[in-house]
Write a protein that binds this DNA or RNA. Structure first.
Lengths: 240, 240
DNA sequence: GCAAGACAAAATCTCGAGATTTTATACAAA
DNA sequence: TTTGTATAAAATCTCGAGATTTTGTCTTGC
């Protein structure tokens, strides 16, 4: 069952994301509910049903759904309403490969172009992530760790001044996060993620362009490998 | 398990299929008007004004505008309405570089993975483009040539089975097209575009991965160079 | 028994008006 | 002159109901 504002604030209390319009608010709540898997892949999103849950009108709900189509988290079928984007192994494979290519390129460029400010922010993001990884003791679905991990990846590519690359990477990261949460709910990772982060961080600070690119690609592909090996049934839910 | 691809990453409904909803219709018309430069960069998009021009209600107009935000052709400013995305040299540079990187990678992969069907379609698209280029005698804003050119680029990357890559390339191609139409209205290109296409096509058919990648990057960057040298004033218009 | 067609129910899509927020103008005080 | 405030105007944002399309079910005919 979809939630809720409180829960989103728990996760990301960033003040700049506080939505000032109902459309923005509903958009963020829906996006969160989809990424968190509370709205299952393939589920129909009927305005009549959702408008009660989110306390807005049908037109407002429609506009929010239109925004989610941009992120490819919702699919619009002409004259037949909206559904949550289905999931598949093929799709996640494509997301992973595309992201690996783009992010590796971005990180290589960041290593080449990043200034002092980039190093400082990256160092900070890495430290916060390290703290979170020591503390979490491999709990799954750790929202705080998820936030730190995202920030670390953002800090890595921040040295590469390309808004378009960052825009695409943001979309792909959200997609990846959804697959992680859906597929790895009960499957602990067999790998030492922290060690991978350490290696990436050190290669970046050493300005080792080739190594950092290779490590990032490997790092991104590792989650796909885990999911493929777990072979968790990636099933769509029916509509309610 | 839904390995079906559906149409989830379609940026737009196929141009030949007439849109079945008003929202889709207005979305396509607005997008065309923006790319063709009839709606100037920075121009405010007031629902009250536009609903008269496009004969729809404010709510429908809003939903269409929300879809355009996805393509980054329209920018939504909270509580202050929508505007046509502004243009800048920095933005076009970023678009060009990102597209060069992505498309070069896609074409290299296509050369590596493309099957007979890919070769056949590419050959056809190239031939049609060649005919259009002989015929057009360097007229500017040739819609038919523009269509053939787009089809040729699509056919090139089609051999690489990555919906996400194609999705991003479609967005970037539209952005590039807008800049071409805005900036090159009265500036004939100094280069032999057809010769570039011939070289790219031959390298692709020869399965020369390295050459075709280099040529594509060069080809995409060439338009940026022309625009930079022309130094057409890229100005925003005021609101009406 | 199976296919085709018609009616009914449900869902989506669209609209015009009202509520909320932003922007512009006028006026007074320092 | 400049600053700040209050009022008015304009634009955006939101809603609930009606129109259009799709979906499900039943009947009819072969």
């Amino acid at each position: 069952m979809p939630t809720t504002r409180e829960r989103r604030l728990d996760v990301a209390p960033s003040p700049e994301t506080a939505p000032r319009t109902l459309v923005q608010d509903v958009y963020q709540r829906l996006r969160s509910d989809i990424i968190y898997g509370e709205l299952k892949p393939g589920k129909r999103l009927r305005a009549e049903h959702l408008k009660g849950l989110y306390n807005v009108s049908g037109a407002t709900m429609r506009e929010a759904l239109a925004l989610l189509v941009a992120d490819a988290l919702v699919i619009s079928r002409e004259q037949r309403g909206f559904i949550v984007a289905p999931v598949s192994i093929a799709d996640f494979t494509d997301i992973t490969e595309t992201r690996a290519t783009l992010e590796a390129h971005a990180v290589r460029m960041a290593v080449r172009q990043g200034d002092d400010e980039w190093e400082v922010n990256l160092s900070g993001a890495f430290h916060r992530l390290s703290l979170a990884e020591e503390r979490r003791a491999y709990r799954q679905n750790d929202d705080y760790w998820e936030e730190c991990n995202k920030k670390f990846h953002e800090a890595l590519v921040a040295g590469f001044d390309s808004p378009w690359t960052r825009y695409f990477l943001t979309i792909l990261y959200r997609q990846s996060e959804r697959y992680r949460r859906i597929a790895l709910n009960n499957a602990p990772p067999e790998r030492d993620v922290h060690a991978e982060h350490v290696a990436i961080f050190e290669a970046a600070m050493a300005r080792d362009e080739v190594t950092v690119g290779a490590l990032i690609e490997q790092h991104i592909r590792a989650t796909l490998d885990v999911i493929l090996s777990v072979e968790t049934a990636v099933v769509s839910s029916n509509d309610s």
